[in-house]
């Protein structure tokens, strides 16, 4: 694990070593971008969010208290940045963009049905209320435990479990409606 490295770099960065800070940002930019993209589903927006988050990281590096993994702290930073970004963006009333168009498939290209279902799931995910959405991203997509997600989102494990349950229910409901529509239409 890179954890000790992260902590060391963060400590040095807090002490004013800009090389360490540069290494820290360099190391985590991809991570910040990925979380941002999972949140917003648009590469360009994710880049903006990651940039914002990197700047915030510089400004608030002192706030990291070594009580958790560095990434735990970073998750929170990126998710908050993403939320703020969209608040500001909605205020400016910019146009909507299709989401998750630029998804990359891990292994071989899935079958058309699979693709369709994946697309529907992503759409459902995109439409979830903020709390449920961030929970699903952390637990189901980032693969964190309920406990870890609870640490990041600052709530008890039980709440995370409940949120995952709620989110799954809503996603399933959405898929049912989609399927229903496809059968009837």
């Amino acid at each position: 694990m890179t954890e000790p490295d992260d902590h060391r770099l963060a400590r040095e960065a807090q002490a004013g070593d800009r090389r360490s800070f540069a290494a820290l940002v360099e190391r985590h930019y991809g991570f910040m971008f990925k979380v941002a993209w999972q949140w917003c589903g648009v590469r360009e927006d994710a880049e903006d969010i990651a940039q914002e988050a990197a700047i915030k990281l510089a400004q608030h590096i002192d706030a990291f208290k070594f009580e958790s993994a560095f990434t735990t702290w970073l998750y929170r930073l990126v998710l908050n940045t993403a939320k703020d970004y969209y608040k500001a963006k909605n205020r400016r009333n910019t146009r909507e963009q299709p989401m998750f168009e630029d998804v990359v498939y891990a292994s071989e290209e899935p079958s058309p049905e699979q693709k369709l279902e994946q697309k529907d799931i992503l759409k459902a995910l995109a439409g979830l209320p903020e709390q449920l959405k961030e929970t699903v991203i952390l637990v189901c997509w980032q693969g964190l435990s309920h406990k870890e997600a609870g640490d990041i989102l600052d709530c008890p494990e039980g709440t995370i479990s409940w949120r995952v349950h709620e989110a799954r229910k809503k996603i399933a409901e959405y898929l049912d409606i989609q399927r229903g529509a496809k059968h009837h239409g």
């Binding site: 960065a13 800009r18 800070f21 540069a22 940002v25 360099e26 930019y29 991809g30 971008f33 990925k34 993209w37 999972q38 590469r43 994710a46 880049e47 990651a50 940039q51 990197a54 700047i55 990281l57 510089a58 400004q59 590096i61 998750f100 630029d102 998804v103 990359v104 498939y105 891990a106 292994s107 899935p110 994946q118 992503l122 997509w141």
Partner: peptide
């Protein structure tokens, strides 16, 4: 199975520059 795309290299550099400047 669903991965994020790669960020643009230029965007990454801009983010790093921005962070360094703020730092």
């Amino acid at each position: 199975h669903l991965h994020a795309p790669e960020p643009e290299e230029t965007s990454k550099n801009q983010a790093l520059n921005g962070a360094m400047m703020a730092y």
